[in-house]
Design a protein around this nucleic acid. Structure first.
Lengths: 121, 121
DNA sequence: GAAAAAGTGTAGATTTTTCTACATATGAGC
DNA sequence: GCTCATATGTAGAAAAATCTACACTTTTTC
């Protein structure tokens, strides 16, 4: 199913994406807000159930790591955004962002080159 | 506060963004899933409280319309996405989308021109 | 091998979100 | 001014998400 991530779950996923394989106490330390060990472990349990992470036993502790890739999650979110705000058009979404976000000339040139090189491929 | 939108609230906002000013029964009809009148009205109540919509009385009914602009909401969501997936870099987010999304040559050229014209401005 | 340290499991409690049911109000038409 | 269809208001239930507290297990260390 790998259903979508809630805000709290995302906090945990971000840590795992950045740091790889960790045990609960380590995730707890890096957590953006103070969270009790058991509360964090509840999030891990849910993420396991949803299939977003996996764990393996090392010594007496379980180590957790992301299964759902960061890029995949981004892609999914972007699709959702396009659905809601641009009638499902991805290119519409990208265009809208280019139009409305503050971008430096360097940024714009970078994007130009990127589109160019991908067009040629 | 204008705090962020839940999935259910977003369903309602989408309808109001598309159709302008409507009364509950009309929103109910256009709702993507079957929803009871009172349940829908509860969503409207929350959206009012959060300041995302306003209402005015016409005859005996209230008509609701979006206060929070669609583009503003998109911007906010995009910022959030950039925060989570690209260390807060908007241009990083756009680049990632161009790289990973399937885009036709026409799409790519359109984006190129867009970046170009914005660069010149 | 007993005690301390570090870890796990899990049963409720709380909070937030969402829905249901029903009582009450209002405007149109006769 | 009644009546009926259409609205609204609201109390409380249900469901989902999150947290707390505490008991139990496994290493490690002395």
């Amino acid at each position: 199913m790998t259903s979508s991530l809630t805000a709290c779950e995302l906090e945990v996923m971000q840590i795992l994406w950045e740091h790889g394989e960790l045990k609960p106490a380590q995730i707890q330390e890096k957590h953006p807000r103070p969270i009790k060990n058991a509360a964090l472990r509840f999030q891990l349990k849910i993420l396991l159930q949803k299939g977003h992470i996996s764990r393996r036993k090392v010594g007496k502790a379980y180590y957790y790591q992301a299964v759902t890739a960061k890029k995949g999650a981004l892609k999914k979110m972007a699709r959702h955004l396009a659905q809601v705000y641009c009638q499902g058009s991805t290119v519409g979404l990208i265009a809208e962002l280019i139009k409305t976000e503050k971008l430096s000339p360097q940024d714009l040139r970078q994007l130009q080159r990127l589109a160019e090189s991908k067009d040629e491929a």
